[in-house]
Amino acid sequence: MFDFKPIRKKSPWILHYNAGSCNGCDIEILACLSPKYDIERFGVINTGNPKQSDVFLVTGPVTFRSRERLIELYTQMPEPKVVMAVGSCTCTGGVFRDMYNVEDGLDRYIPVDVYVPGCASSPELIIDGLVKALEILESKTKEIEKPFKLFRNETNKDGVVNRRNSALKVGEEIDDEEN
């Protein structure tokens, strides 16, 4: 069978969303795709489609008007996926902490994996963050495709096989010591 595990990190496609930023970090992401700091040599393409992408790049402190679209995009992306917060405003709120229309940081809403600091973050820091995100993507791929048990083993007493209590309840896991 064709094995996807070692080649999934060789061509990650990114999705970029502006959740209320000042456009400084967006220009630096656009400069990463320009000929000087070329990230297309890692196999990265900037698509606008959430159903075809692996890495989610968010900029800006999350404002009240843009919360709904952010959660819709996050739930439409298929597993395994990595979320990256670019800029000081996205990590902790930045200069806009405690203003009335702003949530303080992205991890109040969706779980974040990599935090990239800076105001505005330079393209070298974004490339460093992307390399770390690819390592996390590889470890998530290995965890998803590990095999796990669904039923307990049946008991055998005097030649009579009993499968009555072999189903698991919701949220229960099997201890491997029990055989």
């Binding site: 994996d113 935090y115 800076g118």
Partner: peptide, 16 residues
């Protein structure tokens, strides 16, 4: 020097 990049276990926002 360049600032360091944080991961999930560092608790960048909740610790502050």
């Amino acid at each position: 020097k360049k600032p360091p990049i944080g991961i999930k276990d560092d608790k960048v926002n909740d610790g502050w």
